[in-house]
Structure formats: C-alpha cells, structure tokens
Amino acid sequence: MPSIKICVRNGYKVKDASMWVDYIDLLEYFHLDTRNAHYVCPKNLKKEHDKLMTRKNRVEAKRKAEEARKNAKQWEAEYKAKKGMYFGICFGNEDIQIAVITSVADIADEGEAMHHCVYSNRYFNKDNSLILSARDKEGNRLETIELDLRTLEIVQSRGKCNGTTPYHDQIVSLVKDNIGLFRKAA
C-alpha cells in the first residue's frame, strides 16, 4: 500500500492503526491523494479523521434525502387518491398557519427539515393518518401534526427532533377548533 510507504519515508508513526485505516478510506472516498504525505501523515489524526467523517455524513445525508424524494414519486398517485379530498384545507391565526401536506415529496421534505420519521415510517401510506404542517407567519416549520381520520383526533404533534415547541398548545387548539373542516371534506 503506497500510503504505508509514505509514512515510513516521512518517519510518521501511526498511534491508532484502525483510525488511520479508516482515515485512508475516507481520503479515498473523497478522491484525495493517498500518495501525498500532506494527507497521509496528518499532524492530528483524530481531528482530520473527524473532519472527513463529518463531511461524509453530510454527503450521505444529502444523498439519502435525494433518494427519498425520488422514491416519493412512486407514491404520489396513491396518496392523492386516498387523501386528495383534504388537500386545500388550511387555517390559522396571526401567528400560525396549518395546512394539509399535499404530496409525498413534501412529506419527505418535512421529515428531513424537522428531523423526524414522518416520511421514513411512511405516514403518507397509513389509511387513517393525515399529515399537516404548522408554520409561523414567515413560513418556518413549527410542528408536524398527525390526525387520525377515523376519530378526527390528533395522534401527535411534534417539533424538530420530536420535541415540543412554545406553540404546541396553540397548534393543538387550532386543529381542534377547525376539525369541522375535515368532517366536511370526508
């Protein structure tokens, strides 16, 4: 392996062999020169390893998100047939707007932006589940709401990373106050 010869030639002592091998794999992943002492013999192996690992995680997350959007296309017609009668329902107040999410691709975007499983757990494919998005007046996502279409009750309303927000009670109240819109649409 040329990288090992470069270490020997430069008097570089590898203190953590498994991390160094992982680091070399990361260099190859990013098509960086594994025959260059600048890369192969870092002054701070852990720091450089962690930097490349963070970069790889970002690249992989972006790739997964793009793949999710592509996969979402196959579900669009079925989603529209099952939930289309609710599309266009939106309501709110001066601070919050709540609307039914009208496409599987938008559900994928919601899951990615909010860092939760609304897309990966296929809520769009659950017969009695309707997904809504609550946003502030600037359009920033606040919470994602799951409504049970059989009971017309809120199953869950979650902010980023499944957390709660200062708007939670207000969001729940707005949905309950406007539940008649869903009854009419059914």
Score class of each variant (00 low, 15 high):
67 E>V: 11
122 R>L: 08
105 A>N: 07
178 N>A: 11
123 Y>L: 03
45 L>K: 11
51 K>R: 09
42 P>N: 01
45 L>H: 12
183 R>S: 11
92 G>W: 04
133 S>E: 15
171 I>C: 12
77 A>F: 06
57 N>F: 01
7 C>M: 11
79 Y>F: 13
30 F>K: 01
119 Y>I: 09
13 K>E: 01
93 N>K: 05
81 A>D: 05
7 C>I: 08
168 H>W: 08
112 E>I: 09
29 Y>F: 15
54 T>A: 07
33 D>V: 11
149 L>D: 08
118 V>F: 13
125 N>Q: 00
62 K>N: 13
172 V>I: 15
61 A>C: 12
39 Y>I: 09
65 A>R: 13
129 S>P: 04
69 R>F: 11
140 N>Q: 03
166 P>Y: 04
94 E>A: 10
42 P>E: 00
3 S>L: 02
60 E>D: 12
89 I>G: 06
43 K>L: 03
169 D>E: 15
11 G>D: 01
114 M>N: 10
85 M>V: 14
160 K>R: 07
4 I>P: 10
33 D>Y: 11
135 R>D: 03
90 C>R: 05
185 A>H: 09
169 D>K: 14
92 G>E: 05
160 K>G: 07
55 R>K: 13
39 Y>S: 08
134 A>P: 03
153 E>L: 15
84 G>W: 04
123 Y>P: 00
149 L>M: 07
55 R>D: 05
10 N>G: 02
70 K>W: 10
